[in-house]
Simulated scan of single mutants.
Amino acid sequence: MDAGRLSSAALMVSGAAGVVMPVRFATALDLPPTTGRGRAETRAGLGGTYTALGGWALVSRAPAARTAVGVTWLGAAAARLVSMKVDRPRTDWVFWLSLGMEVGLGTAALVSRPRPGELPAD
Rank of each mutant, 00 (worst) to 15 (best):
V23D: 11
P114S: 09
R66H: 11
R5K: 13
D92L: 08
V111R: 14
R80L: 08
T42Q: 08
A3K: 01
M12P: 02
A26D: 04
R88L: 09
R115S: 12
V94K: 10
S60Q: 03
M21Q: 12
T34R: 12
S112G: 07
V20I: 15
G55W: 00
Y50F: 14
R5G: 03
R39E: 13
G48N: 10
A109F: 07
A40D: 15
G106I: 06
V19F: 05
W73N: 06
R39I: 01
A10G: 12
L31A: 14
A121M: 04
A57N: 04
A77G: 00
P116A: 10
A16N: 08
T49H: 07
A79S: 14
V59S: 09
V59R: 14
R113N: 02
G54A: 05
T49N: 11
V94R: 15
V103I: 13
P22K: 03
A10Y: 14
E41K: 13
T27S: 06
G48T: 08
A121Q: 11
R113S: 05
M12A: 15
R115K: 15
A77I: 01
L31K: 09
L110P: 05
F25A: 05
F95A: 06
R5P: 01
A109E: 02
L11D: 03
L29T: 08
D30S: 11
T51R: 05
A78P: 06
D30K: 13
T35H: 10
